[in-house]
Structures are given as structure tokens and as C-alpha cells.
């Protein structure tokens, strides 16, 4: 299985390289440092959500409420920024968004664990509750006009390069935040007992319980972590577009799930890696960017994404069947 997974990741990497070559052949501006930095920045929102979703999928669950959670935390920080923006700083903003995200996530985890309601059902219900109540309270207003420091922060470049014409570009701080989150997630999953316990629980909940794992704690952690990523994602979204709208994220759950599943995470739990999720986000992101650069009408974007998902899922199913067949013969 591990070998298959590694192969899965190399297949993805291969597909990404192939697409990159094709796009570059048609429009060389794809393969430039400037576009590379832009791409990374544009991945950071889906990428952050994908980290949380990865944890949930590995644990054997699913979360359809993270966009609603992100909307709630995004709205809260937007209101705070508008009313007392001068007394806040970026750390406080991340902290507040994170706390809101974690609280709502833990609420999901608690319902799932206490009442044994399937995670999909629980999160569909809570998603309606979070999103419905938020929209009632806020009346669906768009919020914009944040303090200048908030806009300035989004423009910070960690590495700055200049184009031939002298325009500056480079690695955005937003990308850096995402990369830090990726590394943290990778460390948790790979090198902590907590991370390995999540794999163990997703792999076999019964065995995990017998082995003395605290499943309640794991559930609370996983959904709380998804909430944290949703909260951070909402800040990233606010930084990227400098507006907060109640309906800009809800309905995008499936895009994130598709990216993570493309990256090799299984809906039955126990499998998935940060690298895979990163590659899944990259593949879907590059397709979008590439189509723009190749002057494919944006109308076709979804058709192609749909085909890519279907082909990739079929391919995975086909390979699984082959490997089962092979094993039967060799035994």
C-alpha cells in the first residue's frame, strides 16, 4: 500500500510536469518565476483548507462545514477590523480567527463523538446552522474597507525579484504562511504520536480503541484542527481579496475534497499524505492557470476539471483492482 501510495504521488507529479510542459509549449509565460510565485499565492487558500480536510479524511471522516466555519470566522474578523482595526495586529487576527474556527470545529467533533452521528450528516447539519445564523445576523452584507495595515500586510514579499521592466514581484507572505502550515501538518502527521494515532484510528477504529487510544480526544483534535485551518483560511481569503462576503466560500467544499482525494487520501480513512494533498491542490490549480494562459475559454474550466477527477478516480480504482489480482496470483 505504501508503495502504491508513493507511486500515486509520482503519477501526480508526472501529470503536473506533463501539463506544465504542454502549457509552456503553448504559452512560455507559464514557466516563469513570476507565474510560479503567483501560482503559489493562488494555491494558498485551497491549500490551507486542504490541510484540514486531509486530517479529517485520514481519521476516517469528512467535514462539509468548514466553509461555513471559515465564513463565520472571516465575518467576525472583518467586523473587528472595521470597528477597532487600529488596535489590532495580524497576530491577533489569526488568533481570533483560529479560536473561532477551533471552537466550531470542536463542536462538530463533540457531536460526532458523543452521539455517534456520521460525520457527513453532522457537518451538513452544522454547516446549515453556522451559515444560516451568520447570514441572519449579518443580513448578508459584504464587508470591505479594512485598515490600511491589513492591506499592506497582504502586499509583503518575503523574497523580491524585479522584472526586466523593473516591476517587483516575489514570494508573498501569504504563501509563506501556507508553507509554514504545510510543514507543521507534515510534522504532526509524520513525527508525532498524535498524528500516527489519527492514521491508526482511520485505519481501524475498533483496533484503536482496543489498543487504548483515546478516540474522543482524537475526534476533538481532528475536527478542531479542521476548524483551525478554516479560521486561518478565512484570514488568508480576507488578505487576498480584502473583502469578506458571506457567500464567497460556501459551496466550495467539494473543490477542496476533490483536491485532497486526487492527492491519494481515501474516503475510507487511514491513508493520505501532506505531499499528496499538496500535489492534488497543485494539479487542479495549474489546470486553471494553464487554461487561462492557453487562452482556453474559462467556460471550459469545469468540464476539464470534471474529466480530470473522473479519469484520476477511475485510474486509481483500476490500479487497485490490478494490485489485488496480482496479489491473488502470487499467493
Amino acid at each position: 500500500m505504501k508503495k502504491i501510495l508513493i507511486r500515486h504521488e509520482s503519477f501526480l507529479a508526472f501529470a503536473i510536469i506533463l501539463f506544465s510542459i504542454i502549457i509552456t509549449l503553448i504559452n512560455p509565460s507559464f514557466f516563469t518565476l513570476e507565474n510560479f510565485f503567483d501560482l503559489l499565492k493562488s494555491f494558498s487558500l485551497t491549500g490551507t483548507f486542504a490541510i484540514g480536510m486531509l486530517f479529517v479524511l485520514i481519521s476516517g471522516g469528512i467535514d462539509l462545514s468548514f466553509t461555513a466555519i471559515a465564513t463565520v470566522s472571516g465575518y467576525t474578523i472583518a467586523v473587528l477590523l472595521l470597528n477597532m482595526g487600529d488596535r489590532l495586529n495580524i497576530f491577533l487576527i489569526f488568533l481570533i480567527a483560529g479560536v473561532i474556527g477551533v471552537s466550531l470545529g470542536i463542536l462538530n467533533g463533540a457531536i460526532i463523538d458523543l452521539f455517534k452521528i456520521p460525520s457527513m450528516i453532522t457537518t451538513i447539519a452544522t454547516s446549515n446552522i453556522f451559515y444560516g445564523l451568520l447570514t441572519v445576523i449579518t443580513k448578508g452584507k459584504w464587508l470591505y474597507g479594512f485598515p490600511t495595515w491589513f492591506g499592506d500586510f497582504a502586499q509583503i514579499r518575503v523574497i523580491t525579484v524585479r522584472t526586466a521592466e523593473g516591476w517587483p514581484y516575489g514570494l508573498s507572505i501569504i504563501t509563506l504562511i501556507w508553507i509554514v502550515l504545510l510543514l507543521a501538518a507534515w510534522f504532526i502527521l509524520k513525527f508525532t504520536v498524535l498524528g500516527r494515532s489519527i492514521y491508526a484510528m482511520g485505519s481501524s477504529p475498533v483496533s484503536a480503541q482496543r489498543a487504548g487510544f483515546n478516540l474522543r480526544r482524537l475526534h476533538l483534535f481532528v475536527y478542531g484542527f479542521m476548524g483551525l485551518m478554516a479560521g486561518f483560511g478565512s484570514v488568508i481569503q480576507a488578505l487576498l481579496v480584502q473583502t469578506v462576503a458571506p457567500n464567497s466560500l460556501v459551496g466550495k467544499e467539494m473543490d477542496v475534497i476533490a483536491a485532497v482525494v486526487l492527492g491519494g487520501a481515501s474516503l475510507t480513512g487511514g491513508t493520505g499524505t501532506v505531499l499528496g494533498a499538496l500535489l492534488g491542490v497543485t494539479l487542479l490549480g495549474i489546470l486553471g492557470n494553464g487554461m487561462t494562459l492557453m487562452h482556453v475559454p474559462s467556460l471550459w474550466y469545469k468540464v476539464i476539471i470534471g474529466v480530470v477527477i473522473l479519469v484520476s478516480v477511475s485510474f486509481t480504482a483500476y490500479r487497485r483492482k490490478q494490485s489485488i489480482r496480482k496479489r491473488v496470483i502470487t499467493e
Binding site: 457531536i111 452521528i117 450528516i121 453532522t122 451538513i124 447539519a125 452544522t126 454547516s127 446549515n128 446552522i129 451559515y131 444560516g132 445564523l133 451568520l134 447570514t135 441572519v136 448578508g140
Partner: peptide
């Protein structure tokens, strides 16, 4: 939107 929230609540 309160309807949505109530629906979710009734399901839970």
C-alpha cells in the same frame, strides 16, 4: 437563512 439553521438544528 434562519430556516436553513433550523433545518440543520432539527436534523441534529
Amino acid at each position: 437563512f434562519l430556516t436553513l439553521a433550523l433545518w440543520g438544528f432539527i436534523l441534529l
